[in-house]
Amino acid sequence: MTSGPDSQTALPHIAATVPARAGAGLKGEHAAEILEIRPEIGFFEVHAENYMGAGGVPHRQLEAIRRDYPLSLHGVGLSIGGEGPLDRDHLKRLKVLNTRYEPGLFSEHLAWSTHDTTYYNDLLPVPYTQATLQRVCDHIDEVQAVMGREMLLENPSTYVAFEQSTMSELEFLREITRRTGCGLLLDVNNVHVSCVNHQRSAEDYIDAFPMDAVGELHLGGHAPDTDDEGRPLLIDAHDREVDDVVWALYEQVVKRSGPLPTLIEWDNDVPAWSVLLAEAQAADGILHRVAGAELKRAV
């Protein structure tokens, strides 16, 4: 296999389809151990922006892992909700990665991170208005046309609400899927974070979520804090274990959706591989238990 940025995948690797099992985000500090022990896990997810160089150690490790595991490709830099046009060079690099590694899933965030020529190291929220809706749909249409595949759009974690919003987040997401045909990535921790921050019911949000459009689930840890008025404030920190409340919400989701590929996100203060694997195994346990219960009811 050639290792140039435009190379086609030529390895006799396993099927690209991501199974309805738990997976983990691939971190550079874990790659050597993963390649040595070949853990029993459903898939790995990579942040696209970490692999936009032409070669080097990260690509060699990812090529080796891709021989044994399906991949999910998760972008954080497209700025789908940004007011300006999409970065065509960035989108081209995403397409090259998609061709090279044939990920079973591809996702991006409902957020913006650019203004003019400035790039912010954050995923910022958007107002839920008709103008934003049209812009996001136009961007998703462009992404799916260039990539030649379905994109999953992730629900955000939010800390403020916009006065100019004219629809709810759920109405906004439903209309996006209707207009573009894209799927959704349901981040369960983001639901909990946003609902606590806005003093809403996470259970009600999940009950009303358009689950038939969901292709992947995310779980992660959050950091507790308080706002200026002393009310609970949660930060989507990805720096610790999944909270018990989020595990309970996840079980509620799986009872509605059935088993789906589920990623454990842990991007800051990354622990030993064994800790991350244990979180994935806990998610697998819920998937198997709920799926088993559903099968028994069907019989």
Rank of each mutant, 00 (worst) to 15 (best):
Lys27Glu: 01
Ala293Ser: 10
Asp284Leu: 08
Gly23Leu: 02
Lys95Phe: 11
Arg179Ile: 06
Ile34Cys: 02
Pro224Arg: 15
Asp68His: 11
Ala280Asp: 07
Ala248Asp: 12
Ala278Asp: 13
Leu170Cys: 03
Glu171His: 08
Ala20Thr: 07
Ile65Gln: 02
Ala16Asp: 12
Glu33Leu: 05
Ala283Ile: 06
Pro5Val: 01
Glu83Cys: 10
Ser168Glu: 05
Trp266Phe: 08
Lys255Ala: 11
Val254His: 09
Glu265Ile: 12
Leu35Ser: 00
Ala202Val: 02
Asp116Met: 15
Phe209Glu: 01
Leu219Val: 05
Ala111Ile: 03
Glu154Gly: 08
Thr9Cys: 14
His74Phe: 01
Pro224Gly: 11
Glu294Leu: 15
Pro125Arg: 11
Leu133Asp: 09
Gln144Val: 00
Gln164Ala: 03
Arg256Cys: 05
Arg60Gly: 14
Lys296Pro: 00
Gln134Trp: 05
His288Phe: 05
Met151Val: 12
Glu49Pro: 06
Asp141Met: 11
Ala202Cys: 02
Pro19Ser: 09
Ala248Glu: 13
Trp266Ala: 05
Met151Pro: 02
Ser113Cys: 15
Gly285Asp: 06
Pro5Gln: 03
Pro39Val: 01
Pro224Phe: 06
Glu171Gln: 15
Asp207Gln: 09
Ala22Gln: 07
Ala16Cys: 03
Pro224His: 14
His288Glu: 15
Glu45Cys: 08
Asp138Cys: 02
Glu36Gly: 00
Met1Cys: 14
Thr99Ala: 09
Thr17Gln: 14
Ser201Trp: 13
Glu63Lys: 04
Ile14His: 14
Pro271Trp: 06
Asp225Trp: 13
Tyr51His: 10
Tyr69Val: 08
Val160Gln: 11
Ser257Gly: 07
Pro232Lys: 01
Thr99Leu: 05
Glu163Met: 06
Tyr69Asn: 04
